[in-house]
């Protein structure tokens, strides 16, 4: 639909130039009027889906299923030792991801906060806060702060989906943190209170 409209517009342009140069003017005015709601919806549909950082959600990777057997926790997991600390007493990196921002907070196993940083604090403002690059840069700076405090082995708990989801975890690893496990704690309810009304596109 959109393509055919574009082709028609191009054709009319070339004809207009061929016949006389003055007729180029009405073209621009009609093009502005042609922009309807339907076309905008179609354009949005034709755009590629926004990357939320949840890679592997749809695609099936068979190899990873075959090779790893003990990737899930069991009854002994809380007492398993990682770098001299039992799993249940490892410090926790909480990452809260939304479409507009990414917030990192490092807590000990009781939940006492030690470091809180977000993409906004890090200097990314407005729409840039919600990008994967911002999340990765923030992750690296937070991780270096944690390493300065002597915290290396951590568990990661991710909450929410957004562009920063994957890159935040990757950034932590790039900075040299030793990630033991990744947990998802996205709040999901099957009978939630009535959410806000839908956005108008």
């Amino acid at each position: 639909m959109l393509q055919s409209r574009l082709v028609a517009a191009l054709k009319s342009l070339s004809i207009g130039q061929g016949v006389c140069r003055i007729s180029a003017q009405p073209l621009s005015t009609t093009a502005a009027k042609c922009r309807q709601v339907e076309d905008r919806r179609e354009m949005l549909k034709s755009l590629p889906a926004i990357d939320e950082g949840t890679s592997g959600e749809k695609a099936v990777d068979i190899d990873s299923m075959i090779h790893h057997k003990d990737i899930f926790p069991n009854l002994d997991t809380p007492n398993m030792m990682f770098n001299g600390t039992p799993f249940k007493e490892l410090p926790i990196f909480n990452i809260r991801v939304s479409s507009n921002n990414t917030v990192f907070s490092l807590t000990d196993y009781k939940g006492t906060p030690k470091i809180i940083r977000s993409c906004g604090i890090e200097g990314f403002k407005n729409a840039r806060k919600g990008t994967n690059i911002a999340a990765q840069a923030t992750a690296i700076s937070v991780a270096t702060r944690a390493l300065e405090k002597g915290i290396k082995t951590i568990r990661v708990r991710v909450r929410g989906i957004g562009p920063g989801r994957m890159s935040a975890i990757k950034g932590l690893q790039m900075a040299g943190m030793d990630i033991v496990s990744i947990t998802d704690s996205t709040p999901v309810a099957w009978d939630p209170p009535r959410p806000r009304k839908q956005r108008k596109l």
């Binding site: 099936v60 994957m166 990630i179 496990s181 947990t183 704690s185």
Partner: peptide, 19 residues
């Protein structure tokens, strides 16, 4: 909803969790 990271391969663990 927990996945262990093996051989420092964070991406594979994330993929398993997301899937």
């Amino acid at each position: 909803r927990t996945v262990f990271v093996q051989k420092n391969d964070v991406e594979a663990a994330c993929k398993v969790l997301n899937r």
